[in-house]
């Protein structure tokens, strides 16, 4: 390796290292600042370690808007897991039907309807969704939130891409052997789909955990709020200390960061594949 090349390599590592630090620094600052006292943060905002571990902020967020923190945690878990399960099941079945029988009358309309839906500005879709939920009597219910979150932006593309890649001969061979459609689905397609189902589950979990606006619009009271919604509630609450807000931000962020770090490769591939297709 020439000296010049070594120099370029060093510069590349230094540059990327600095960029990486900038990207993760906000997480570090969030956690450290949530553990320090106001006066301490004001005098030295950049300190990398807290003077002492002060958990006052975490005690302050024990109740938000009169509701215990544990309730929001539970809501987040329940709503995210339920909506992920419904999304995976419903989207997979539809994508499978569309890939197996693309010429069936009316079936392609589902695809076009879906494309139109994801083009509409999501936040603005919620204005009329509020009216629809009202008409369906789902305002303020968990069911309304879960059902709305079950319609995601990239899950359909991930499944669609995968089912199209299954060789037609494989399925035809099974049908010739006398298998019914149910058997084809359960014994041939499903075992092959384990990977894509895993990826879509992860991606959906991460996306839905972060959702806040649908939760706030469909809820009629904070009792159905998830963590990000509670965080926004606390952010607008007068007199909430910034440490308390950063503490709740930490609680909201930590689970997805852990899930992501454990499954990073798959998650990044999933996001990229869903986007390239869509």
């Amino acid at each position: 390796m020439t000296a010049h090349r070594r120099l370029v390599q060093l510069a590349a590592y230094l540059g990327l290292g600095a960029v990486s630090l900038v990207f993760v620094y906000p997480y570090w600052w969030m956690v450290v600042s949530s553990l320090r006292r106001t006066q301490e943060v004001m005098t030295a905002p950049l300190r990398l370690l807290p003077e002492r571990f002060d958990f006052t902020a975490y005690e302050q967020i024990g109740r938000i808007g009169g509701i215990p923190l544990a309730h929001y945690v539970w809501n987040s878990l329940a709503v995210t897991i339920a909506s992920t399960a419904v999304a995976v099941l419903v989207t997979a079945l539809a994508a499978y039907a569309l890939s197996r029988r693309p010429k069936l009358r009316g079936l392609q309309l589902v695809r076009y309807g879906f494309l139109l839906t994801i083009m509409y500005p999501y936040m603005l879709l919620l204005i009329p969704v509020y009216l629809v939920m009202h008409q369906l009597g789902l305002l303020g219910s968990y069911a309304g939130i879960v059902l709305f979150l079950s319609l995601g932006p990239i899950q359909f593309f991930l499944f669609d891409q995968f089912f199209r890649s299954i060789p037609k001969e494989l399925i035809e061979a099974a049908l010739v052997d006398g298998a019914g459609e149910w058997q084809v689905l359960w014994k041939v397609v499903l075992p092959m789909s384990r990977n894509v189902v895993g990826t879509v589950t992860l991606v959906t979990f991460l996306l839905n955990w972060a959702q806040w606006f649908p939760v706030i619009v469909i809820s009629t009271a904070p009792t159905t709020y998830t963590l990000p919604a509670a965080l926004l509630l606390l952010n607008t609450e007068l007199g909430a200390s910034f440490q308390a807000i950063l503490a709740l931000a930490t609680v909201t962020t930590l689970p997805v960061v852990v899930v992501f770090l454990l499954t990073q490769r798959r998650v990044m591939e999933g996001f990229a594949a869903g986007a390239v297709k869509g």
Partner: peptide, 12 residues
């Protein structure tokens, strides 16, 4: 490091 913010809840 660069992808971490993408999966971080936007409100937080």
């Amino acid at each position: 490091c660069i992808f971490l913010p993408v999966i971080t809840p936007d409100v937080a």
